[in-house]
Amino acid sequence: MGRNLKNALIAFVVPLPSILFYKFFLSNYNHHNNHLIWSWCNNHPLLLANILFFFNVNVLFWIISLIQSSNWMIDVYWTVIPVLLVHYFESHPSSQFDLWRSRVVVVLTWVWAIRLTHNYFRREKWQWGAREDWRFTDLARQYGKHWWWASFFAVYLIQQVFLIGVCLPIYIVHVVNKPLNMWDFVAIVVCLSGIVIAYFADTQLYTFVSKNEKLKELGKPLVPNLDEGLWYYSRHPNYFGEQLWWWGLAIFAWNLGCTWAFVGALVNTLCLAYVTVLVERNMLKSEYRVEAYKMYQKRTSVWVPWFKSSSNQVPKEKAS
């Protein structure tokens, strides 16, 4: 069996423990709802989600990563887990919600997940587990022989904090039953805007990287920097779009009286701010792009698309 097929099979099989346990809970709760275990599962849906995440993702994914010497799978499941969570919260016996709001959030979550999953596999040339995130590789070098245990915390446990945190609005939507109002439509617009912006930004980046790969194969000079389309107005429009999605999702929860639900989006934004610094430092490691990228940094907004700075304005270089 080829590596690609083997990794695909692992990725499809690995969430089954949580899915089968939840299906077992649903079928048994309907007939034995006074049983201590099933009663607890019914009364604590958020805690149950965290327990399943801990054992099925943190522990099982970590063990697989030690066997394969790669943490590739968590990137794939960053796009899948919100979809699993939205259906978990929607179908949980203790849920109560406005049907239309739930349907909208379910559809939006699927659209977001499909876009991000498509971008991931397009970037990875449709391979399963061909490589892990470069940030994990850098951390592995830093931790050395301690990486085997440190990766459990640095890669997996931290993902639980982020993913459950940013998905709290999905939980709130399914435990508060209030009619739709104007703010729901504002949330829809913000979420869709984020998805669309991220899609076009990632597509423009993919096109740019693909052209540079062809230039490299032909032995021609590489274009040092992407400074067209959305990337003309922002250094990280894909990050901006992704943040719009999570903040739009938080508006749904805020509208239902849960202001604290913004905490997840805020923590995720702060984390992405740190990632932005790491990405830009990495960009400056390539000598052929240092000068162009430093100028790009001076003239272009970091996240929010905006007009070029009037200072240090120079004509754009044409791609050769």
Score class of each variant (00 low, 15 high):
residue 181 N to T: 05
residue 182 M to R: 08
residue 183 W to L: 02
residue 183 W to I: 00
residue 183 W to Y: 05
residue 184 D to P: 00
residue 184 D to L: 00
residue 185 F to I: 08
residue 185 F to R: 00
residue 185 F to V: 06
residue 185 F to N: 03
residue 186 V to C: 02
residue 187 A to S: 07
residue 188 I to C: 06
residue 188 I to E: 03
residue 189 V to R: 01
residue 191 C to I: 15
residue 192 L to K: 01
residue 192 L to E: 09
residue 194 G to P: 13
residue 195 I to C: 14
residue 195 I to L: 13
residue 195 I to N: 10
residue 195 I to H: 14
residue 196 V to I: 15
residue 196 V to L: 14
residue 196 V to Q: 11
residue 198 A to E: 15
residue 199 Y to K: 12
residue 200 F to G: 06
residue 201 A to R: 14
residue 201 A to I: 08
residue 202 D to N: 12
residue 203 T to K: 01
residue 203 T to Y: 11
residue 204 Q to I: 09
residue 204 Q to C: 05
residue 205 L to K: 08
residue 205 L to A: 07
residue 205 L to Q: 04
residue 206 Y to I: 15
residue 206 Y to E: 08
residue 207 T to M: 07
residue 209 V to G: 01
residue 209 V to E: 07
residue 210 S to H: 01
residue 210 S to D: 06
residue 210 S to A: 13
residue 212 N to H: 04
residue 212 N to P: 04
residue 213 E to G: 01
residue 213 E to D: 13
residue 214 K to A: 07
residue 214 K to Y: 02
residue 214 K to G: 01
residue 214 K to W: 02
residue 216 K to I: 04
residue 216 K to D: 07
residue 217 E to L: 00
residue 217 E to R: 00
residue 219 G to W: 02
residue 220 K to Q: 05
residue 220 K to R: 05
residue 220 K to T: 03
residue 221 P to T: 01
residue 221 P to R: 08
residue 221 P to I: 03
residue 224 P to Q: 01
residue 224 P to R: 04
residue 225 N to A: 07
residue 227 D to G: 04
residue 227 D to L: 08
residue 228 E to M: 08
residue 229 G to S: 09
residue 230 L to Y: 11
residue 231 W to M: 04
residue 231 W to C: 09
residue 231 W to P: 05
residue 232 Y to Q: 02
residue 232 Y to W: 05
residue 232 Y to H: 11
residue 233 Y to P: 10
residue 234 S to Y: 02
residue 234 S to E: 02
residue 236 H to P: 01
residue 237 P to T: 13
residue 238 N to M: 04
residue 239 Y to E: 00
residue 239 Y to M: 13
residue 241 G to C: 13
residue 244 L to M: 15
residue 244 L to W: 15
residue 246 W to M: 09
residue 246 W to G: 06
residue 247 W to L: 10
residue 247 W to A: 04
residue 248 G to V: 08
residue 248 G to C: 14
residue 248 G to W: 10
residue 249 L to I: 12
residue 249 L to N: 11
residue 251 I to N: 08
residue 252 F to P: 11
residue 252 F to N: 03
residue 252 F to Y: 12
residue 253 A to P: 11
residue 253 A to S: 12
residue 253 A to H: 10
residue 254 W to Q: 06
residue 254 W to G: 11
residue 255 N to G: 02
residue 256 L to P: 03
residue 256 L to E: 10
residue 258 C to R: 15
residue 258 C to S: 14
residue 261 A to M: 13
residue 261 A to H: 11
residue 261 A to Q: 08
residue 264 G to K: 13
residue 264 G to Q: 06
